[in-house]
Design a protein around this nucleic acid. Structure first.
Length: 643
DNA sequence: ATAGGGTTAG
């Protein structure tokens, strides 16, 4: 084997096993000590093939007097890994061991700065900046560009701009880096000014503006950029789809996706994940299934992110079996996102035990759970009432995986105790947290008080909340609910008056249902139209039958104010999820599952009604509320009345 | 240059 042949073969290696083979051939022929070949070999392992950085490092450590290319390659490999700090250690090593053979060059600093940016260390970044100055490389175009990005990532846009202003002849990449840094810093005006001043804009710059606006929540501006672009490439289309999906414009996502197909273009994997993510959020099961068909037909099942989004989509559309199937049949190694998506899905459906089992499977497969994985597992425990197991997971996270619990994990733990009625324990847990509790923590506790009717604790907690976030309407409603359960109507009235006085409005509940691939939205107490009339008529018929055959009596204890019982019953009757179900019963043929998505948590009365409908009408109803699923069948719900 | 998983509440 000669050098040429070896490089050719290396290019075709896609797995570590194949590299092992070449490695063996090199040893046999003596080519192994050829620095050029060796450099290419470790480049291939540390950058091109996944999961083989360790292999590259081991080879590197045994190579006598590595040259600058080899050092750069290892630094680069670490910079994109889970432990970017190792890039810096390698650099220190390089300075100490072999300054004669390998002086750092512009590549060295570009990769090092990328590493510092990746773990957000401004201190390291600044030190590297100094080192680059010492070596006379700070003025290099590539180094300058990575300096701009690094300072942007570390939240110091003013430094980014200083570096940019001092550049002699910034190219388009440097301009783009400056724009990105400004977006990171949330300075939209500077972005616009830079964009206007750019002497040359290729489509990358336009795409950057589009994505930047989208991340800042400026959909309107993103749309404007998209429409003004003369050349729309693949990235432009996928960025636009993602922009709309990230900002809740689901109808438009489907529209743009259809436009793309109508123009005869082939959607790429990023567009597909965007569309599937929109389906997931909107609960558009039928549409999602059609997209899945397209994914299979066009060979996208080979892309891991597409499969991950499919798992998420099926979970959030209420079809756990399909989600499980996608996970099981994935042709590639499951990533941390695949496992976590499935875990979150199980959590939402109240399958706590299965979630814990799946966590074990994940660990056995060799993927280490991260902080988000544990949020999902803890969430699964709290929503299934698995106190012991939740406690164990929390312990394991800290002591086995050395993950420092963050505010989200503490939130799950408070929820775990609070939801189960252990209010004292939950309160004590909050008091001894090592980080200051935020509004979400207190709100979790207030929610628990409202579930279990603890007036005293609720009042205490509400006071903490009033200091942190006094205008949250949900908190006022929760407190008034606690009073209502306890029959303290005077206090209910006081809360209600203070809400009116402070102009705090309740958020209106809405529910959506998909019929023939069209999403219909119902809002409680909204003006009547043909669709709502149809729903109301059907609902009247249903409620009558439930009273006669199901023994239904309205549950009215938790309504906001002290009004006459009949009136209370009336306002409960109009909840949007009831209208959506009625509409589904009227339009869908018998035997079809009725799927509903709601923006708030389902109320107790609606929960009872759904159970009764599933029994009296022998139909299956799936409701996705703000945080989890309820699967009604034969008169009972999958949440076992724990939610 | 674009993507995929996460706590509470009305």
């Amino acid at each position: 084997m000669n050098q040429q042949r070896c490089l050719y073969l290396l290019n075709y290696c896609k797995t570590l096993k194949a590299v092992n083979h070449i490695h063996a051939c090199l040893l046999k022929t003596g080519l192994f000590s050829d620095p050029f070949i060796f450099g290419k070999l470790i480049l291939h392992c540390s950058v091109t093939i996944s999961d083989s950085l360790d292999y590259a490092t081991r080879l590197f450590l045994h190579y006598p007097n590595p040259d600058v290319f080899m050092y750069n390659t290892i630094i680069r490999g670490f910079s994109e890994s889970q432990r970017p700090q190792n890039s810096i250690t390698t650099y220190i090593e390089m300075r100490r061991e072999s300054s004669l053979f390998a002086a750092p060059d512009s590549f060295t600093f570009a990769f090092l700065l990328k590493a510092a940016a990746n773990y957000g260390s401004l201190r390291t970044g600044k030190q590297l900046h100094c080192q680059a100055l010492v070596h006379g490389l700070a003025g290099h175009l590539f180094v300058g560009t990575t300096l701009i990005s690094m300072y942007g990532e570390c939240g110091r846009v003013e430094f980014s701009m200083k570096v940019f202003d001092e550049m002699r002849e910034p190219n388009v990449v440097a301009w783009n880096a400056a724009v990105s840094a400004c977006f990171r810093g949330g300075d939209l005006e500077s972005c616009e000014r830079l964009f206007d001043r750019m002497p040359f804009k290729d489509s990358t710059s336009w795409n950057l503006m589009l994505a930047g606006y989208a991340k800042a929540g400026e959909v309107e501006m993103a749309r404007k950029v998209f429409s003004e672009m003369e050349v729309k490439d693949d990235v432009s289309w996928s960025s636009m789809i993602t922009a709309l999906a990230q900002n809740g414009c689901f109808d438009e996502v489907f529209g743009v996706f259809m436009d793309l197909r109508r123009l005869g273009m082939r959607p790429n994997e990023v567009s597909l994940t965007g569309v599937l993510s929109a389906c997931a959020q909107a609960g558009a099961f039928e549409f999602g299934r059609v997209v899945h068909g397209f994914v299979e037909k066009s060979g996208f099942s080979w892309i891991i992110s597409v499969n991950n989004t499919l798992i998420d989509m099926y979970s959030k559309c209420g079809n756990l079996d399909m989600a499980r199937l996608v996970l099981k049949k994935m042709p590639q190694k499951k990533s941390i996102v695949s496992w976590t998506s499935m875990l979150a899905g199980l959590a939402m459906h109240g399958h706590g035990e299965e979630a814990i089992q799946l966590l074990h499977e994940m660990e056995e497969s060799g993927i280490k759970p991260d902080r988000i994985t544990f949020i999902s597992v803890l969430y699964a425990c709290s929503h299934a009432g698995l106190i012991e197991q939740g406690h164990e997971c929390f312990w394991k996270m800290k002591n086995v995986y050395n993950i420092e619990p963050s505010i989200e994990h503490y939130g799950c733990m408070v929820d775990l105790y609070g939801r189960a009625g252990e209010l004292r324990k939950a309160y004590e847990f909050v008091c001894q947290m090592p980080i200051p509790p935020n509004d979400i923590i207190w709100r979790t506790l207030l929610g628990a008080c409202s579930m279990h009717g603890n007036v005293e604790l609720a009042e205490q907690v509400k006071e903490r909340l009033s200091e942190l976030d006094p205008t949250d309407s949900g908190d006022h409603v929760l407190l008034s609910n606690v009073y209502a359960i306890a029959g303290k109507w005077n206090n209910v009235e006081t809360v209600r008056r203070s809400m009116t006085y402070q102009r705090i409005k309740k958020i209106a509940g809405w529910s959506m249902i998909e019929v023939d691939k069209i999403m219909y939205t119902f809002v409680a107490g909204e003006k009547q139209n043909d669709i709502t009339k149809e729903a109301y008529n059907k609902l009247r018929e249903i409620m009558l039958r439930l009273r006669v055959e199901g023994g239904y009596v309205a549950e009215v204890g938790r309504v906001l104010h002290d009004i006459e019982d009949e009136e209370k019953e009336d306002s409960v009757t109009k909840h949007s999820e009831k209208l959506a179900v009625a509409f589904g019963m009227a339009r869908l043929c018998k035997g079809r599952v009725i799927r509903i998505v709601k923006n708030l948590r389902i109320c107790r009365d609606c929960h009872t009604v759904m159970k009764l409908i599933s029994k009296v009408y022998e139909s299956e109803i799936v409701v996705r509320d703000r945080s989890r699923f309820h699967n009604f069948k034969d008169g009972s719900c999958s949440c076992r009345n724990y939610w």
